[in-house]
Design a protein around this nucleic acid. Structure first.
Lengths: 213, 213
DNA sequence: CCTAGCATGTGAATTTTATAACTTAAACCG
DNA sequence: CGGTTTAAGTTATAAAATTCACATGCTAGG
């Protein structure tokens, strides 16, 4: 088996293709071409084919791709052929929003534990979950075999929380705190920075008005 | 004036450097080297210097960068030398979380209008803002000179909402709905997709365990 | 059964981005 | 005051990602 390194941009797009295919499938579309996918998600057709080529041949020449099949393949590639239990730390507004976010469930993610160290939050319910104290985390991780943790705490707590997660067996961290986490090499970390994209917008707006002078 | 095209990756990193510099400044650090910034945010020192070189010379050879100055320069470049009024549509849990998110305020963003078409939400208060019906949007945009809109609605409403924003003068859209928006060429759109990063994690976890077989 | 048309898959070319190596300038020390 | 050290800025090199262009192979129609 040749193990070509897959660019992260390709994985990102694959995730987007995958969701787009789900939408097509729901709308009853059975066949789709690279050009239509490209059009639908805003990339070039060649890009779509190149991205898929990292993982195999999924289409039929002269015809296109079977929507259901390609949807399944992409989900399989992304590891979404089974459910993923998640834990989340930080039962603030963001944590609450993430717990109730439909987009996670529909892709096979399920938050099985919510934690906080704030006594006023512990014991409250979010959906059918009760906010637990941090000490309960090890048990929850073991019970559900959780590998992925979400950090949705204030900045000051983020590093400590992430370290504690890893100490208890978490292998990958999705971090919403806008600061870099210092974790062991083998831990996968990705940051979701809510204001970076906003600052790209302001940069571009400024750039445009500069050009119009 | 030479107008070199700036890679979006550079702008993204600039935003991250900028926030890191704010943190250093709060901690009383006055001088910093490209190597220290690199270390702090997880890139290479050459990358930091190259990124800054797109915009000018900000350091002193043999010494480094003045933290306060570089912080101001980076904010200026990103267009953050003044405040930005924002509007937000979708007063659900995510919308609520974004309205109360400190990270926006601290970078000069201020949500000045929240809208929804759900009668049970209209009239409710989020901080000092009242959730308004969509029809009030044009007035709010004009009154505050709003250029940027945030879409935090369910998927089915996202396109319509974005189109309505643009019709009323919005020039840039931050979209939290995980589907591509179809808007005029001249409108800046960036998507924040909460589950893409999660799927990168699951991809990588799967890839790792495949290697261990 | 053969031909025309179409869309995939892929290798090559191009463009873009990142890294590395080098040059320049400031500051400090003897 | 000159030499040494340090780190920015810059040029050159390498790597990576994207686009292009074409050959391949499937389907449908006559």
């Amino acid at each position: 088996m040749k193990t070509l390194r897959v660019p992260e941009a390709t994985v990102t797009r694959l995730s987007i293709y995958s969701r787009y295919l789900e939408r097509l499938d729901r709308n009853g579309v059975t066949t789709v071409s690279s050009g239509e996918i490209a059009e639908g998600v805003g990339v070039s057709p060649a890009q779509v084919r190149k991205d898929l080529a990292y993982f195999g041949e999924f289409g039929t020449r002269g015809v296109g791709y079977n929507v259901k099949d390609l949807m399944r393949y992409t989900k399989k590639i992304l590891g979404l052929d089974h459910n993923w239990p998640l834990i989340l730390v930080g039962a603030g507004n963001l944590g609450y929003a993430l717990c109730t976010y439909k987009g996670f469930n529909s892709r096979g993610f399920k938050i099985v534990g919510v934690f906080d160290n704030d006594l006023t939050k512990i014991g409250k319910r979010i959906n059918e979950l009760e906010v637990l104290p941090m000490e309960k985390m090890p048990d929850v991780i073991k019970e559900h075999g959780v590998k992925i943790g979400i950090v949705a705490t204030p900045n000051r707590a983020a590093q400590e929380v992430a370290t504690y997660m890893v100490k208890n067996g978490i292998q990958a961290v999705l971090n919403f705190a806008p600061l870099p986490l210092n974790l062991p090499e083998h831990i996968e970390v990705r940051n979701v920075d809510l204001s970076v994209k906003l600052e790209i917008l302001t940069f571009n707006l400024g750039f445009k008005s500069a050009q119009n002078v």
